[in-house]
């Protein structure tokens, strides 16, 4: 294939990766930014979203789009509820101590993974996309559904941005992030804000998973890669910076796609990872972060 189309394809693929990554990482970033909790189980919430999407879409008969839409609404809600329970039962009792929450979320990771294996099984299972339109470009064909993921993700990101910056909920969250003690003093129910943020973070991961699962598939070990990538995106983008998270996701998604055009894939991953690490070493606050930590 000629170089131009090849690059176009790599860029499209990179954008799809970025779209899903941005949503997942935003969830992690919120939890991280507002609660200062490193949620190691974040990838498992992502996995749960995909697994639930499979369960819901197979339970609902009729057109594939029907099951998918139901999954898109229900799966994140269920995951959010699970996260809420976990937050109330465990994280709150730990007083959000950074080290303790790492161990606790590692524990959650094991629990969720094992439950998925027990009840869902070890197989990879596909979910039918709501529509399967193949866009025919002069050089290659491309999935129309993949393009719609980019649009859906952008929509959700804008909605999140709106909530964070233009509503009272967002204001309360930002106040808590900025200084939780002062926020408490001003009558903000910090405790409830934390619970909400943790649930919201998990829901974002679940939505991302529901979007990706028709082109990927649900598997009980699928949470690890998104977790690592999200960590990277969150740090590169700068803590708690929505704009930074999105830019970093696009950067990492695109570089992952495009570097693979020029190098052997494993070498490409080595170079990309090293590059990102170096960015962090020489700009530890991330690209858009302000103060340290």
């Amino acid at each position: 294939m000629a170089f131009g189309p090849h690059l176009l394809l790599a860029a499209l693929e990179g954008l799809v990766t970025a779209a899903v990554l941005a949503l997942t990482a935003l969830g992690l970033s919120l939890v991280f930014g507002v609660m200062r909790v490193v949620n190691v189980a974040h990838g498992e919430f992502f996995m749960l979203g995909a697994v639930l999407a499979w369960a819901i879409s197979t339970a609902i008969s009729g057109h594939a789009a029907l099951g998918f839409l139901a999954a898109l609404v229900l799966a994140p809600l269920i995951v959010g509820l699970i996260a809420l329970v976990a937050e109330r039962l465990v994280l709150r009792r730990l007083n959000y101590n950074p080290e303790a929450t790492i161990v606790a979320t590692i524990g959650m990771l094991y629990i969720i993974q094992q439950l998925a294996l027990t009840f869902y099984g070890p197989e990879a299972r596909p979910v039918e996309p709501p529509f399967s339109y193949r866009i025919l470009l002069p050089w290659f064909g491309y999935s129309g559904y993949k393009l719609s993921i980019i649009a859906a993700s952008a929509l959700l990101l804008v909605a999140t941005w709106f909530v964070l910056t233009r509503t009272k909920i967002g204001l309360v969250m930002r106040a808590t992030q900025y200084d939780s003690e002062t926020a408490q003093a001003f009558g903000i129910p910090v405790d409830r804000v934390y619970a909400g943020v943790f649930a919201l973070g998990a829901m974002l991961a679940a939505v991302a998973a529901v979007l990706i699962v028709p082109i990927s598939q649900a598997h009980y070990l699928m949470g690890q890669d998104p977790l690592l990538l999200s960590f990277i995106v969150v740090i590169i983008g700068g803590l708690g910076s929505l704009r930074g998270t999105v830019v970093a996701a696009v950067l990492i998604g695109l570089s992952d796609g495009i570097i693979s055009v020029f190098f052997s894939p494993t070498l490409a991953k080595i170079i990309a990872t090293l590059l990102v690490a170096m960015v962090l070493v020489f700009r530890p606050q991330g690209l858009f972060g302000t103060a340290s930590r």
Binding site: P5, A10, E13, Y142, D225, T266
Partner: peptide, 14 residues
């Protein structure tokens, strides 16, 4: 050759 961590393949097909 496709790296073991890959979850999407289209970019290799060209």
């Amino acid at each position: 050759a496709i790296p073991p961590t890959e979850s999407s393949f289209t970019k290799y097909f060209p």
